[in-house]
């Protein structure tokens, strides 16, 4: 009898760990419903002519038109403008705020009194904690014409003439509005990276008689390569696809597509019924471009950063 059981023990196949699947099931269901199905659906819709006139929520009833929406997209003269708008917006906001500004704020707050540094970092977090509608309300008044605008009032006091911030300088403020929210993410990552630099290295450098600038240049920055790359890739994706603030602030205007970005176009075409004719199919074509960019960058990002962590195996086995 012992021999039998022993044989069974040796050859027993690994049973599926039902407990683990039970723990994962709710998340898995939501992921399928709101990530997997939509990702497939958006690709399909982009190949249909779904619009307000023939709208249906039944996938089987949509008219398949192949790649026609993409042909329209590539020949759309405004698509080109919107594309370069997006490149400009992401490039400038990312380099000057989400990465550059974040690094500067992290370095500055790391080199002052601890409590003060914490206080300033907390303040930088505020824009992210405000609801976008109130935050934008604030900015609308900031750039308004006299006598209401805050900046114009200050310019008046300083003796400068009035400036039409909300028309001629709107891009500057679109970038500021998003950049000021964007700083906090990188700031937090960089700060924790700076704080994790071993005290010994810092002390050694202090003993060597280095100045703060030298320490930043030769000790801190070389150790920041990975956090920098992480923030860069993560925030590129986030800037590329988020449009809530631009939607509320300029809605792509005030000129023709003056501040329109790619993600906002997808929204305008499909979800905003401003002209009363939502083009679901065409809007989805815009969205698919972003979905593909998103997936590619996300996979790339996985390859670069986290793979080692995945390898660590659980230290309790399922009997």
């Amino acid at each position: 009898m012992n021999m039998n059981t022993s044989a069974r023990a040796r050859t027993a196949p690994t049973r599926p760990n039902l407990t683990a699947y039970a723990f994962l099931a709710p998340v898995a269901i939501l992921v399928v419903l709101f990530f997997i199905i939509p990702a497939l659906l958006v690709i399909y819709i982009s190949m249909t002519d779904l619009a307000t006139a023939n709208f249906t929520s039944d996938v089987g009833q949509m008219t398949f038109i192949g790649l026609k929406n993409y042909e329209t997209l590539f020949s759309d003269p405004y698509a080109r403008k919107i594309f370069f708008n997006t490149v400009f917006y992401v490039l400038v906001t990312l380099s000057l705020f989400n990465v550059g500004g974040a690094l500067v704020v992290a370095l500055l707050t790391a080199h002052i009194n601890r409590r003060a540094g914490f206080f300033f970092r907390a303040l930088w977090l505020l824009p992210r904690l405000m609801t976008s509608t109130v935050y934008i309300l604030m900015w609308e008044r900031m750039v308004a014409d006299p006598p209401y605008g805050i900046l114009n009032q200050l310019f008046g006091v300083a003796g400068y003439g009035t400036v039409a911030f909300n028309t001629n300088h709107i891009w500057t403020f679109v970038i500021l509005v998003n950049g000021i929210i964007g700083i906090s993410f990188g700031m937090i990552i960089f700060t924790s990276a700076i704080e994790s630099i071993s005290k010994d290295i810092m002390n050694a450098s202090l003993v060597d008689g280095s100045t703060a600038m030298q320490r930043i240049r030769y000790v801190i920055l070389p150790l920041m390569r990975w956090p920098l790359l992480f923030v860069l890739s993560y925030q590129t994706l986030s800037l590329l696809t988020s449009y809530e603030e631009i939607l509320l602030f300029t809605n792509g205007g005030p000129g023709v597509y003056q501040t329109e970005v790619w993600a906002l176009t997808a929204f305008h075409r499909a979800l905003s019924n401003y002209f009363g004719n939502a083009q679901w199919g065409y809007g989805s074509a815009f969205a698919v471009v972003l979905v593909i960019v998103g997936i590619v960058l996300a996979i790339l990002y996985l390859r670069i950063f986290r793979f080692r962590e995945l390898v660590s195996e659980p230290k309790i086995e399922n009997l």
Binding site: T5, S6, A9, R10, I316, E317, L319
Partner: peptide, 23 residues
């Protein structure tokens, strides 16, 4: 203890093989 599962061989407590007995 039953935290790891043996790849091969047997562990017997008294008369009972415990290879697949949870902790």
């Amino acid at each position: 203890a039953g935290i790891y599962k043996p790849t091969d061989g047997t562990i017997t407590f008294g008369e009972r093989i415990v290879n697949l007995v949870p902790p």
